[in-house]
């Protein structure tokens, strides 16, 4: 006798919703990627300004990600391991850059770095300029990317049982030695994932950068400029190249951070 399969309406609901979400993301991107001709793409890539802007996007985002690793890792460890008064407030502060409209971030940083503020004055005296500089772009990208790194790595540290660290200390390793020999080797995938998230967020940033540094032009600003000055057709090839470069970079990083089978 054949068993009749029951159809769960909830299963169909999830299937339909999932299809809508995937289509909603993919269709505009595929449409845009397919729009420019091969000739358009070739010409865009031959344009020195385009190459420079894409490189600047990658370079500044990478730099922002590495700054986040350097200052965000100890901070994420502190949040993952220690209890202290006001911890919830500190965690909320970390999330602020995710919530604030991005032009506001640009304006805030510019306000701080201007001549009217003592910090801005001090920075200019030691030769750090924010307005219209690569330093400015990196500062803004670090600001928007840092929360993604800190939150991802914090979750990674929390997943490492504190007892492993206790045992390491009892065996003679210092706190720093334990971090290097136990915590980092077990949390490095989270650190890499955090780095990717931070980099991805930074490379897609437009609103804050356009306030702080219209020039030198990062790729999103150049796409915007070409769109407003020359229209959709002229901006699309640059956008396609940016998408492709990002895709390759993130795929590579994802492949390196995939867990080994025997460790699952």
């Amino acid at each position: 006798m054949k068993m009749r399969k029951t159809i769960d309406p909830f299963f169909w609901l999830t299937l339909v919703c999932s299809s809508v979400v995937v289509a909603f993301i993919l269709i505009p991107l595929i449409q845009m990627t397919a729009q420019p001709s091969f000739q358009d793409l070739k010409e865009a890539l031959q344009d020195r300004d385009v190459r420079r802007s894409i490189w600047l996007s990658i370079y500044t985002s990478g730099l922002a990600a590495f700054i986040s690793v350097a200052i965000g890792t100890p901070f994420a460890y502190l949040l993952a391991r220690k209890k202290f008064p006001g911890k919830k407030i500190v965690e909320s502060i970390v999330d602020l850059p995710i919530m604030i409209p991005h032009p506001v971030i640009g304006i805030a940083i510019l306000g701080l770095a201007g001549k009217n503020h003592w910090i801005g004055n001090l920075m200019q005296q030691i030769g750090i300029h924010i307005m219209g500089t690569v330093t400015g772009i990196v500062a803004v990208l670090t600001f928007v990317g840092l929360p993604f790194y800190v939150n991802t790595v914090k979750a990674g540290f929390e997943a490492v049982p504190v007892r492993l660290e206790n045992v390491s200390r009892s065996l003679g390793a210092s706190a720093a030695g334990t971090l290097l020999r136990v915590t980092f080797p077990l949390a490095w995938r989270s650190m890499l994932a955090g780095l990717i998230m931070c980099c991805a967020r930074a490379i897609s940033e437009f609103g804050a950068v356009v306030i702080v540094a219209y020039h030198p032009m990062i790729a999103p600003v150049m796409i915007y400029e070409r769109f407003t000055a020359h229209g959709l057709k002229y901006s699309q090839p640059v956008a396609v190249w940016l998408i492709l470069v990002c895709l390759v970079l993130f795929l590579l990083l994802r492949i390196f951070s995939l867990p080994k089978d025997n460790q699952t």
Partner: peptide, 17 residues
């Protein structure tokens, strides 16, 4: 600090690296 005490610890969940 723990590393200077010369005291070993074994947990019920083994806590192996």
């Amino acid at each position: 600090p723990p590393e200077q005490r010369g005291i070993g610890i074994v947990y019920q969940d083994y806590a192996l690296f």
